[in-house]
Design a protein around this nucleic acid. Structure first.
Lengths: 351, 351
DNA sequence: TTGTAAGCGTTATCAG
DNA sequence: CTGATAACGCTTACAA
């Protein structure tokens, strides 16, 4: 008879494991696991021993193993167009504050305003098996949308709630916000109002804002020509350039509505440079209400949006999904606020 | 004799697995794994079958399992004080661009300028078993430092290279940058120069900047009293307030060196409000060279630092660690540049 | 070039 | 309240 002796193929292991803690504490691995995850199910005395052992050898759990074994993730993924725009930084701060409190980590990706790229990022995000996914806007490529629909975890679409969300929507209506601001400008006497936003391709928020402006203008019997509607990359410099172009080509220009404050502040600076008086010669308003908008000279009329709060609520929805996830409670409108300041004549808004 | 029949305890599984792909393609799981990780080791025909199967059932790999099995992570962790400060947003953009290109995901945490919090975040980060860790600065709590020293993955300390790094340092000397700028101000004739920075507790970059200023001043035979040295939270508003305080209490004030542009621009606005002429009455300079600094009126003299590049290089160092990780090549000085603009008299710097 | 078996570090399950 | 065992989905080691 032949005896085959097989060597245990022990692969080189990294650091301290749960069984090392168990051995030291004189208990089994599962008890250590319980101590970590359901301490109330472990006797006081055992708990003390385990805690001492963990502390002594500096054990740090392996989340990859935990995720695999329990099928419960400790990370949440978020995709924003860019982290460089401060509104998304504030948004992420909101997410981060809630998630870290709950012991989750945040996996951040930037799509660069490309829907194709977004879809690729969604896929690599799903590969990480996160507890939830938070994306920006409701516009996705077909593939991206398909992935989000099939994935079996909470999906939050943040920043735009115009359409029905795939799963959960948290944000405000970009259309309504710009519609209201434009109505305010019209009510204050402005007629020849130009509009500039970020490029609208792959950006449903910018698109919604433009549509809101157009709807209010048309309602007032005005039909802005194409030359009154601009797209500009997000920067002070581009805001300044657009202002110059508009002033040069439209002598009858009365106001410009910039769909973000950075463009608007660039415009403010360009006017100061050219000696154009704001609001006497031309009214300017922005969107976002960044810190700077309140202290420029003149201060900037704008739309305040709850950037940080959108992050918080989005994170909370991911955490509580399954609990509150009724077919009705899946859209959270956090609203907006018209902030009338010195860069326009006073704006009266509301019903 | 008693026969014990054990049921296979099959736990409910989530989605599509590698074995489903294998079955469909008529190969073994390991072949699918190879197709994904080392495609050159799989025959052309097999590859096609596997690719078709993956596509057909929409297989997305499980990174938790891959990480556990291969002991190779697909995420990198970074800890910054806050994501709201645009310099860290640019830094993260640099990290992100390199890492995503390499197929890695970025795990971001914010310490809120607390070293205790940083240590806690380092621990939860290590729990994720990332491929590397990138932290801000070289100042850490004892516990945080211990964790970083013991962890067996690349550790990059970014933004300050004053001391010997734990593993790898990428950034510039905050001391030198402020020393040079202060020398420039002195060489241009300013003597009564005030200095304001972010709070220096738990912030070795701010501390280094202040020390650089002090060293240059002392070298010039000047010993600024405490009232000339300020700390202010990062905001336009605080910059404006500090400017007001300095002007009110120091009639002989000639210049203010703000250790970040946001404070400096707040000061610029306060001066415009008060009718203080810049640079005629007082010189103002900043630090960081944010976009706005170039277009304020007057434009802001400042120190340009390679924020995005620091991110890129930090990421590259994490990726290549082990390859290039000699005892000498572990500090990368990306330098800085004095940018003389209109908010001071011209600054001549350099040797 | 492909396949088999074992193992990665943890937790679910069931037994005591 | 505690423990033994199998399983999570993938990759390494080794074999064919």
């Amino acid at each position: 008879m032949k005896t085959v002796t097989r060597h245990r193929k022990k692969r080189p292991s990294g650091g301290v494991q749960i069984r090392d803690v168990a051995r030291l504490a004189g208990v089994s691995a599962i008890t250590v696991s319980r101590h970590l995850n359901e301490p109330e199910k472990v006797a006081e005395k055992t708990r003390a021993k385990v805690a001492a052992a963990i502390n002594e050898i500096g054990y740090i759990p392996n989340m990859a193993a935990r995720t695999l074994s329990s099928n419960k993730a400790s990370v949440v993924g978020v995709i924003v167009p860019t982290i460089t725009n401060s509104i998304f930084a504030d948004f992420i701060a909101g997410l981060s504050d809630v998630l870290e409190e709950q012991g989750y980590k945040l996996l951040i990706s930037c799509s660069g305003y490309s829907l194709e790229r977004e879809a690729a990022l969604i896929e690599t995000l799903i590969a990480q098996r996160p507890a939830g996914i938070i994306v920006t806007g409701q516009a996705h490529s077909e593939r991206g949308r398909g992935l989000l629909q099939r994935v079996r975890i909470p999906v939050v679409e943040a920043w735009e709630i115009g359409s029905a969300p795939i799963d959960i929507g948290v944000g405000f209506s970009n259309f309504n916000a710009c519609y209201e601001m434009t109505r305010g400008l019209l009510a204050s006497g402005y007629r020849n109002i130009a509009f500039a936003s970020a490029p609208i391709a792959a950006n449903d928020r910018a698109m919604g804002r433009r549509q809101g402006y157009l709807a209010a203008m048309r309602e007032a019997g005005l039909s802005p020509e194409l030359s009154w509607i601009r797209e500009a990359e997000f920067s002070f410099g581009r805001g300044a350039e657009v202002m110059g172009e508009l002033v040069d080509s439209h002598p009858n220009l009365e106001a410009v509505f910039y769909a973000n404050d950075i463009l608007a502040i660039g415009a403010l600076i360009e006017c100061q440079r050219r000696g154009i008086r704001i609001p006497d010669d031309i009214g300017i308003c922005g969107f976002d209400d960044v810190e700077l908008a309140a202290i420029t000279i003149p201060s900037l009329t704008t739309v305040r949006i709850p950037r940080y709060e959108i992050g918080r609520r989005a994170a909370e929805m991911v955490m509580s999904a399954g609990t509150t996830n009724g077919p009705d409670g899946n859209v959270i409108d956090l609203g907006f606020e018209i902030i009338s300041r010195a860069s326009t004549v006073p704006i009266f808004s509301g019903p």
